[in-house]
Design a protein around this nucleic acid. Structure first.
Length: 602
RNA sequence: GGGGACGUAGCUCAAUUGGUUAGUAGCGCUGCCCUGUCACGGCAGAGGUUGCGGGUUCGAGCCCCGUCGUCCCCGCCA
């Protein structure tokens, strides 16, 4: 029991919790000159207070805006008590501000509320940081006091935009005949893919649920059930390390449809993106989006999520160096490797040290080294060009259309690796040289991914997308002999160099699914144990089907211009997957563990 | 798992090469004054375990080791 000293006097308690005479009539974003002369009651938080002694101005804030209210301390005794973040209800007359006193920066700046009655609904200690966008506050403090951080208009704008985006998505799919169907959060662990978050079962001793990494299997089962058009805004969970655009729990726009081909999914999603950009950003985009094969993307841009707002492309110059006196390149070509180049424009500011830093990055990215040449007024500035023949140089100038101020980066290696390294440098340099056309919105589909890749770690093939992705029909004959050459019917959606979604046409044939499991070195007993329900469903009249999942948080981040995914999630986790506000995850009582039949080892 | 940046007042930051008792710092906070401000203004004031632990040194905010936390990147993320 608390002592009497901490008791709140009864009349104050009644003021806070009792019936209220001041019921809100307008929000703090509502009032304009046309309300002048009317009575209004506003509620909100004190944003700033300007005390002039005989007159007190308070900017009252709620999620709709801010309104200046004016208090005469002689009439309103609470005027002097008000502090930032106090919760107020004020009534009075709306009046036009005196001539010349209008505030053009405020939406409600033409008017103010002359307060006749003021109730302090709650008080606040001085907050740990100011609720304003003027100053950067360290993110750990913001996350600790998330309820205050979310009071900032900018954060509220993000969450409002998130809501609007969700509404548009739901409307779009509903209008196209798609049904939103929920799938379980407590499901079975599927060891393929990311690490699972596990949930112990109390009732089934020693057994565990897993939180879904995605509703992949359930949505396929819905197709088998005949719900031929499904979507869901759904939470997914992956226990992997975080990034600026990755959270352990995140939201997907999950979509699946039956009797469709790749192009049907593309058109569906293109339509959605067009509506979203129009409604949210007021931007008209061109559809259909360009389609690039995985190989095209990699060979031209050095990435499977190319940012085509950067004009520089990778060019294969192996042929030029076939007979070059520069042994490093000519021998690489002779040995079946290749020489890849990236021409970079506007490099006037780059000096030797910058290229050396680039070389270090290239080496970190897996290259053996980096060749570079910069065309200056004095000629070729380069540690390697002195080894080039004149024929090499003129062929390069012609092939790459080199001009003064351009630089060329060279990587000689196995083609895919060399391109990937140049792809990394391309992004790095474009950022540094501000060579990204940020006014552009570039969408593209990347298709024809390999179905499998060899995992050196696990010494087996693993799925590039997931094990239910259908092989490309033209490559079925390669499945048995050369699985690494099989392309998949998977696809990614890329927006300005960010992967915002991925999907595939699925396998709907039990025998083919079995064969894929075999290539993945999943025994039929294993497959039966883990995915038996799916295999069984495939036997009972599974329709051809396919779909996509779009990263909702990432999408909202890009639509809102937020620079971190955390800014568009109300209560996000830190890079070490903890919540600084609730301090989750936390230890639990020994009794709880016992009930769950669990013992911890540390 | 690995690499990098950062951690000083409530907040944002400063503090020369390791040198007195940490800085007239900005914002915020407290008190007083002020009837037209809007990032109000004026005067006065309070506020510090330099994340934590250890070491080197005559002397550490600064150097070294460890640790904790935040952020970014690689691995990882079907």
């Amino acid at each position: 029991m608390k002592g009497p000293s901490s008791m709140v006097p009864f009349d104050k308690l009644r003021a806070r919790h009792g019936p209220r005479s001041l019921k809100r009539t307008h929000t703090c974003g509502d009032l304009t000159a046309k309300h002048a002369g009317k009575k209004a009651v506003l509620t909100g938080w004190c944003d700033v207070r300007r005390d002039h002694g005989g007159l007190v101005f308070v900017d009252l804030r709620d999620r709709y805006g801010k309104t200046q209210v004016v208090l005469d301390p002689k009439k309103i005794r609470q005027a002097k008590e008000i502090r930032p973040e106090y919760v107020l209800a004020v009534s009075g007359a709306v009046r036009k501000r005196p001539k010349g006193m209008e505030n053009k920066k405020m939406a409600t700046g033409a008017v103010e509320l002359a307060v006749e009655e003021c109730a302090i609904l709650n008080r606040s200690p001085t907050p740990p940081f100011e609720i304003s966008e003027e100053k950067e506050v360290s993110e750990d403090l913001r996350l600790q006091y998330r309820f205050l951080d979310l009071r900032k208009p900018k954060m509220q704008k993000f969450l409002i935009l998130r809501h609007q985006t969700a509404q548009i998505v739901r409307n779009y799919f509903s209008q196209k005949g798609f049904l939103e169907i929920e799938t379980p959060m407590l499901t079975r662990s599927t060891p393929e893919g990311a690490r699972d978050y596990l949930v112990p079962s109390r009732v089934q001793a020693g057994k565990f649920f897993a939180l879904p990494q995605s509703p992949q299997l359930f949505k396929q089962l819905l197709m088998v059930a005949g719900f031929d058009k499904y979507f869901q805004l759904v939470k997914c969970f992956r226990d992997e390390d975080l990034r600026a655009d990755r959270q352990p729990e995140f939201t997907q726009i999950d979509v699946e449809a039956s009797f469709v081909e790749r192009e049907d999914i593309f058109a569906l999603v293109e339509g959605l993106m067009a509506v979203l950009l129009k409604e949210v950003l007021g931007v008209k985009i061109k559809t259909p989006f360009d389609r690039l094969s995985y190989v095209e993307a990699l060979w031209n841009y050095g990435s499977d999520k190319p940012d085509r707002r950067i004009v520089w492309k990778i060019v294969d110059v192996s042929e030029i160096f076939q007979k070059s006196p520069f042994k490093i390149f000519s021998q690489a070509v002779a040995g079946g490797k290749s020489v890849q180049t990236l021409k970079v424009t506007g490099t006037g500011v780059l000096v030797r040290k910058d290229f050396e830093a680039l070389e270090a990055l290239a080496v970190r990215s897996g290259a053996r080294g980096l060749g570079w040449a910069k065309l200056t007024k004095e000629g070729w500035m380069s540690p390697i060009a002195k080894n080039f023949s004149e024929a090499d140089k003129s062929a390069l100038v012609k092939e790459l259309q080199l001009k003064e101020g351009d630089a060329v980066l060279f990587v000689a290696d196995e083609k895919n690796l060399a391109c990937a390294v140049l792809g990394t440098l391309r992004l790095e340099l474009a950022e540094k040289l501000k060579a990204i056309d940020t006014a552009r919105n570039d969408f593209c589909w990347v298709t024809d991914f390999p179905l499998f890749e060899w995992s050196a770690l696990e010494k087996r093939y693993v799925s590039v997308h997931h094990p239910f992705t259908s092989p490309h029909p033209d490559d079925l004959s390669l499945l048995a002999g050369e699985p690494q050459k099989v392309r998949s019917q998977g696809y990614d959606l890329v927006w300005n160099g960010s992967e915002i979604g991925g999907g595939s046409i699925r396998i709907h044939d039990r025998a083919l699914q079995q064969q894929v499991f075999e290539i993945l070195n999943i025994s039929s007993a294993d497959a039966e144990r883990r995915f038996g329900f799916l295999l069984k469903a495939l036997e009972y009249g599974a329709p051809p089907h396919g779909g996509i999942a779009l990263g909702f948080d990432r999408l909202v981040m890009l639509l809102s211009g937020a620079d971190s995914i955390r800014d568009v999630i109300a209560f996000p986790k830190t890079a070490s997957a903890t919540c600084l506000m609730t301090e989750a995850p936390a230890e639990v009582d020994a009794r709880q563990l016992k009930e769950l039949h669990i013992q911890t080892t540390r």
